[in-house]
Nucleic acid binder design. Structure first.
Lengths: 154, 154
DNA sequence: TCACAATGCTTCGTACTAGAACAAAATTTA
DNA sequence: TAAATTTTGTTCTAGTACGAAGCATTGTGA
């Protein structure tokens, strides 16, 4: 029995969004693994690189890793001596997260390498195409965030 | 010490891609959970809905869930009696996966509901905007797949 | 006809995911 | 001033993710 409903106009765009992201995660993730990191670990190191450190809250906001998950990612990075946790003198609830010298060294190595890897794919698009895509993504991003706000207000 | 490198032109587009996808996953995932499913479980049910069933390989290709992971997702759906595994008469290596009547019933309920949920966000964009975004995503998707092929050839 | 290669699915190890609950600390309110 | 509320990070649970290895089956080639 075929379900009767009008095929929504946004489905082709949705499909491309999902497919595009799948390919991106696969292309990006495979390279990050070659660098000896997992994608979330890379995200954390990339976010901390060239900073004096930041709180878990701030780190979570920038990497978009939820706080329950972030604790575990930080645990493993700490275990590898790539980051360290410091007490915050002003607020005992807070932990300051910073790269260790080894972490900073790894950042200097992996960050440009990964950007170069990603550029191999992105440079297949022209500057105008990238600009236009960025505009469209920003619009959808904005629409989604508005809809999330509405959803959370219920 | 600040790392010296030219800021790649694609970074703003990359940032929007990641952000946009984050928001999408969050908006979509939250609703799917409200429906009592997890995102991968929903993906499988949505893919199987209105079909006579398909092989694990085919299902993996359509949902883009890797095969090791798919086995577990199917285990849990089978446990909830929403899908069933059948032998393939033509090839003993294959398993045919199909929705049970309960699974089909759930599909009829959740699929349009989720499409309606997603439409609330996507309808904030005009038809022309969606079309343009689709084009840009398809181009990037294509570029990524080409780069993946190059990467795998090494 | 048989050895070898490829395929399909499962198992395994390790890392992660989201969100609820929790405890400690800081802020707000009466 | 003290109770109530909010904030921060951790713990916990069920589910997931990837890719390698393994096993059974099918396909290929000499």
């Amino acid at each position: 029995m075929k379900l009767k409903y009008d095929k929504p106009a946004f489905l082709p765009t949705l499909r491309e969004l999902v497919r595009c992201n799948q390919s991106f995660e696969r292309f990006s993730g495979a390279h990050v693994r070659m660098l000896g990191l997992t994608p979330p670990q890379f995200d954390v190191i990339a976010t901390l690189g060239n900073t004096e450190g930041m709180s878990c809250k701030e780190l979570g906001e920038k990497t978009l890793i939820t706080k329950g998950t972030l604790t575990g990612v930080l645990d493993r990075l700490e275990q590898r001596r790539l980051i360290e946790r410091r007490e915050d003198a002003a607020d005992a609830r807070r932990t300051q997260i910073a790269l260790t010298p080894a972490g900073e060294s790894l950042f200097v190595q992996v960050f440009p390498a990964h950007l170069a890897h990603l550029e191999r794919a992105f440079s297949r698009l022209s500057g105008a195409e990238l600009k236009q895509l960025q505009t469209g993504l920003a619009a959808l991003h904005h629409a989604l965030d508005k809809s999330i706000a509405v959803m959370n207000a219920d």
